[in-house]
Design a protein around this nucleic acid. Structure first.
Length: 574
DNA sequence: GCCGTTTTCGGCCCGACTGTTTTCAGTCG
């Protein structure tokens, strides 16, 4: 049987080819073509082999040659060109290139002169000061390489969105107090709300750029200054997070914000557009190419307007169709936190939560919600004190009584019911029928085959009392990979059975992810945002769920949480 | 290697910081 290659693996092959070509010093644009194709393949929402079969392989940056290569990988599970080119350099060189500050040229230099073909060899050589003999390398480079290797070992490359948001807020609060600072904003992937962040980007407008940089480098959490120039600086905080700061003059703030928010692919796309219109765009503004006259730059709105584009929300700036949608004025109106009327997934002290149902309800009311669904665990999840049928019945009665205490607010009875390994549910239908809302989830048996897991969830959706499948992929970011699912089958079943899929807001889950959310929306499946709160503080995580929803292009109408109580009950009916 | 309301060939986004061969290549975002 041929090993079937998936989007991610095909993208990975292209990325590695790009790295190899880079070390070999091949044509820069050819390298970029491989990278661009890889990124666009990663952003696909459908399996590439399905697209290929249906002859719908219309991926930007993938032409005749690359689509042939994709076809070969789908058909044979390997790529002859890749196998051949891989043999031309030692595999360790690719790893060396991941060291910050070490690129293809340095890698090649080290290999050619010192036969260094692995990170460990490089570390040994640097420690013995053997690099400084090489033409072009001196003491400082040696130091930087050793520091770069340390950084890799610490593995800070994948910071959770929630962690980065908190760290950024702390630093921004300090910078905001400076009189020199006119405007300040986060930028980069943090502003785009990616699920994990590599470093924090902050943008400031000021008339005294250098002074701001000085102040920034004196801030409390600075452990090490990585770079410090007149308008730009990078530091490492005490907890090992890299923070990049850029300072521009106030009349360039908008252009700089577009520039530093990215993504890189988005920037390249709008610059190409600018060029076609006889404009040039950089971090200082939008300029007429001929005369150099500045036509925009103060605000982001101005910049997009100068390019004849409707404003594009940061979360959409991934070059996955947002520029085209903007040109046609067909951008979605993304859902916001203010649109949320309910939390759909919360645990009380009846199972493994820390607070009473009443406490959770009161907090929800303060947040401006009009209803919540209490969803404690079902019996078989012993580790989380899952409720027995008897306890659940008691809880239903308590919630009924509790509802009399609230005005214009309703607590719905729900449960997070385990989907057992055969796809049956952890409570009898007779009991499920008494609940207002039923969530179903896989908590065990992650190692089943893709077919088994898919069928298991499909079977749960076919139960007429199940309303929402929660954390559908079961992943924990940086800890546990998603189990395998045939997502097309899942969304088809979700649609056929009117079952919603959850965006779980728990910082390590964020499951569904943005890509699957967008696909679900395309297929008109409803999404529900749940915080999976076990404490009242965790109800703040709704913001993270909203980020995923926005990255998945969701509008108010796509999200169950935005419906009124009555609309909600009506909508989830089977 | 991709791509085309000027083009099937000849372009392909733009600038800051660092270390070094002190004028600029390499790296990064």
């Amino acid at each position: 049987m041929v090993f079937k290659m998936k989007n991610q693996q095909i993208a990975e092959v292209f990325k590695q080819i790009a790295d190899i070509l880079e070390i070999k010093g091949e044509n820069f644009f050819r390298i970029r073509a491989y990278r661009r194709a890889a990124q666009n393949i990663e952003n696909l929402t459908e399996d590439i082999d399905v697209l290929l079969k249906e002859k719908k392989l219309d991926i930007p940056g993938v032409g005749t040659d690359l689509s042939q290569k994709i076809q070969e990988m789908i058909d044979t599970g390997r790529l002859d060109y890749f196998d051949k080119i891989k043999k031309t350099i030692p595999s360790g060189l690719l790893e060396i290139m991941t060291i910050p500050g070490v690129g293809p040229k340095t890698t090649k230099l080290l290999y050619d002169n010192l036969s260094i073909d692995s990170v460990s060899k490089l570390e040994r050589a640097a420690k013995k000061h053997k690099l400084r003999g090489v033409f072009g390398l001196k003491e400082k480079t040696e130091e930087n390489i050793l520091q770069g290797i340390e950084l890799i070992k610490q593995g800070h490359s994948c910071i959770l969105l929630s962690v980065a948001m908190a760290a950024a807020a702390e630093i921004m609060d300090k910078l905001k107090k400076l009189k020199l600072v006119k405007k300040i904003n986060v930028a980069g992937s943090l502003r785009r709300k990616k699920q994990t962040i590599r470093d924090i980007d902050i943008l400031i407008s000021s008339t005294q750029e250098e002074k701001v940089i000085d102040e920034f480098c004196r801030l409390a959490p600075v452990k090490k200054i990585l770079a410090k120039g007149q308008t730009k600086s990078a530091i490492l905080t005490n907890n090992g997070i890299q923070v990049d700061l850029r300072v521009v003059k106030p009349d360039s703030f908008g252009a700089a914000l577009v520039y530093f928010t990215g993504s890189k692919a988005h920037n390249i796309h709008i610059r190409e557009l600018a060029k076609k219109r006889g404009l040039k765009i950089n971090e200082y503004g939008v300029f007429l190419e001929k005369t150099g006259k500045k036509v925009a730059g103060k605000t982001e709105q101005d910049v997009y307007k100068a390019l004849n584009l409707a404003f594009i929300e940061p979360e959409m700036r991934e070059d996955t169709g947002e520029v085209e949608a903007s040109q046609k004025h067909k951008l979605p109106r993304l859902v916001t936190l203010a649109d949320i009327k309910a939390d759909m997934h919360m645990h009380s002290n009846w199972s493994d939560g820390a607070y009473s149902i009443e406490d959770m309800a009161k907090t929800a009311q303060k947040r401006g919600y009009t209803y919540i669904v209490i969803t404690d665990h079902s019996q078989s999840l012993g580790i989380a004190h899952g409720l027995s049928p008897e306890r659940l019945k008691q809880q239903i009665n308590e919630i009924r009584a509790l509802n009399k205490k609230f005005k214009n607010f309703k607590i719905f009875s729900g449960a997070e019911v385990d989907i057992k390994s055969d796809g049956s549910l952890d409570f009898e239908d007779k009991l499920l029928e008494r609940l207002d809302v039923v969530l179903a989830a896989v908590h065990t048996g992650f190692k089943q085959s893709k077919e088994q897991l898919t069928q298991r969830i499909v079977k749960a959706m076919q139960n007429k009392f199940v309303n929402i499948i929660v954390h559908p992929f079961g992943r924990l970011i940086n800890e546990r990979a998603s189990y395998e699912l045939d997502f097309e089958q899942i969304i088809k079943a979700a649609k056929d059975t009117n079952t919603a899929l959850e965006i779980n807001s728990y910082p390590k889950r964020l499951d569904l992810d943005d890509v699957h959310v967008r696909r679900a929306k395309q297929m008109r499946v409803m999404l529900a945002i749940g915080t999976d709160s076990h404490t009242i503080e965790q109800m703040n995580m709704m913001e993270l769920g909203i980020s995923v929803a926005r990255r998945g292009w969701l509008e108010k109408k796509d999200v169950l949480n935005c419906l009124s109580q009555a609309e909600f009950l009506n909508r989830i009916k089977k």
